[in-house]
Amino acid sequence: MRGYQLFEAVLVTVCTLVSPVCCHNVSSEETTLNSTAADFDSFRAKFQRIYEVSGDEYNRRRLFYQNATKRHMYLNSFSTGPQSAKYGINQFSDLSQKEFRDLYLRAIYDRTPLFSGLSLKQLPAKFDWRDKAVVAPVQNQQSCGSCWAFSVVGAIQSVQAIGGSQLEQLSVQQIVDCSYQNEGCDGGSTTRALKWLKQTSVKLVTQSEYPYKAKTGICHFFSQSHGGVVIKNFTAHDFSGQEEAMMGQLVEHGPLAAIVDAVSWQDYLGGIIQHHCSSKWSNHAVLVVGYDTTGEIPYWIVQNSWGTRWGNEGYVYIKIGGNICGIADSAAAVFL
C-alpha cells in the first residue's frame, strides 16, 4: 500500500494549507456547498442524516465535511483541462477517508495475465452497450463492500441480454452469500467469483427470487431443476498499455468487469477523470459499458454501484490512455 499512502500523505499535507473553497460550474445534482454550519445542516437535510446537532457525532461529521471541502480544492486544482472531472460535496462528504475506504472500497485485486490476443480492426469511434438496451439500471450497494459482486452480476446479465434473452436483474445477494472464496460484505475478488461460478455451475437466479439485503447472509441453495443463468467461461486480462485492445474486447464480448483505484471517487461529481488515480493499487470493482473517442479527451463509460445520486447519474467517465485509475489492470469478459 506504499503508493496509496504516499498519495494520501501528499493530499493531507496540501489540504491542511488551504482554505475551504467551492468548485463552480458543475452541472451535477451534487452541487458544492460552503463549509458553514448552515450549509452542513443543508447537507444533513438533503442526505437525511439524523445525528443530533448537540451531539459528538454531529461535531465529528461536521469536521469530516469541512475536511472534504479542503480536499476538493486540491483535487480541482488539477482539473483545468477540457471536460475535466470536478470534485465536491456528495453523499460521502461526512465520512472520513478511512471510513469511506472501509465501507466501499473492498474489492480484492488478483493479478491477471497480460493480454496477448489480437485486437479488433476498425473499431467504432464511439460504442455504448446502453444504446442496445442490454445494461441494467444503476444499483446501490449501500454500506456493504459488495462492489465485486455487482460488477460480476452486471457483466453476466448484460451478456445474457446480448444473447437475445430479456434483460433482467440477477441476484447479487446470491454471490455475496454463496461465493465461499470471498468475504461477502467484507470484500471479494471478481475473478474468484467468476471462477466459483464456472467451477460449480451455480445457476444465478433473479434478484426478485434472491433479493439484495446489503449484508452477508446464509447461502440459499436451489434445486438443480431450478432455472437460472450459468456461465460457461470467462477471461480476465491486464490491458495495461493496450487499452485499444480492451475496447475491442468490450465491443466483441460485452461489458467488462474491471477493478480500479477509487480513492478519489469519494468526492467525484462528474466529468472525465484524468488525475488522482493510481494503477496496481486497485480497491473497487465496476462495470465498463462503453467508450467515446470522438471528443478531445477519449474516455471510458463506467457504471458504478453507489446509486444514481453519485457522479453522472451513477456513472463515471475515465480518460482512455495511461491506465488512469488502473482501469486496464484487470478486465474480465463473460461467456454464457
Rank of each mutant, 00 (worst) to 15 (best):
T216C: 14
N59E: 11
P298A: 09
R44S: 05
T191R: 13
A107E: 15
F78D: 12
C325N: 09
N90Y: 02
T69W: 00
Q91E: 13
L194T: 07
D102G: 04
Q5R: 12
A38Y: 14
S42Q: 13
Y291M: 08
N304H: 03
V286W: 00
K319T: 05
Q169C: 10
N25V: 03
K46S: 06
R130Q: 07
S84V: 06
G81C: 07
Y299Q: 01
D110A: 07
A68N: 06
G217S: 13
N90F: 03
P113E: 05
P20T: 01
Y58G: 05
G163D: 12
S158P: 03
R49G: 10
D94C: 09
E168A: 07
Y104V: 01
H220G: 11
L197G: 01
S223R: 12
Y74T: 08
S264T: 09
T31C: 01
G270A: 11
Q303M: 09
I324L: 04
A257Q: 07
N25R: 09
R101Q: 15
W129T: 01
S116I: 10
A125Q: 13
P124A: 08
S35A: 15
W300P: 02
G188R: 06
I259K: 05
H253Q: 10
N59T: 10
Q173C: 08
E29I: 02
T235N: 14
K195P: 00
S264E: 09
F335P: 01
E209C: 02
L170V: 03
H276E: 14
K203I: 00
F222D: 05
G188I: 06
E168D: 07
F115I: 03
G154S: 08
G55Y: 10
A262K: 01
G307N: 10
Q139T: 10
E99H: 03
I231T: 02
D238N: 15
I175R: 06
R71K: 12
Q157L: 08
Q249F: 01
D128C: 00
Q91M: 11
A331C: 13
Q207T: 06
E30A: 15
Q303H: 03
H276K: 09
V135T: 03
Y212C: 03
S19A: 07
S240Y: 04
F47T: 11
D329Y: 04
L118N: 14
K86P: 00
G311R: 01
C178L: 11
G314K: 05
L336F: 01
L103S: 12
F7Y: 12
C219K: 10
T235C: 08
Y51F: 09
G217F: 03
I272M: 00
Q5W: 12
Q242G: 05
A245V: 03
D131R: 11
S77R: 12
I156G: 04
H72T: 13
G314A: 12
S84P: 05
K126C: 06
I218H: 15
V53K: 14
F92Q: 01
S240N: 12
E313K: 09
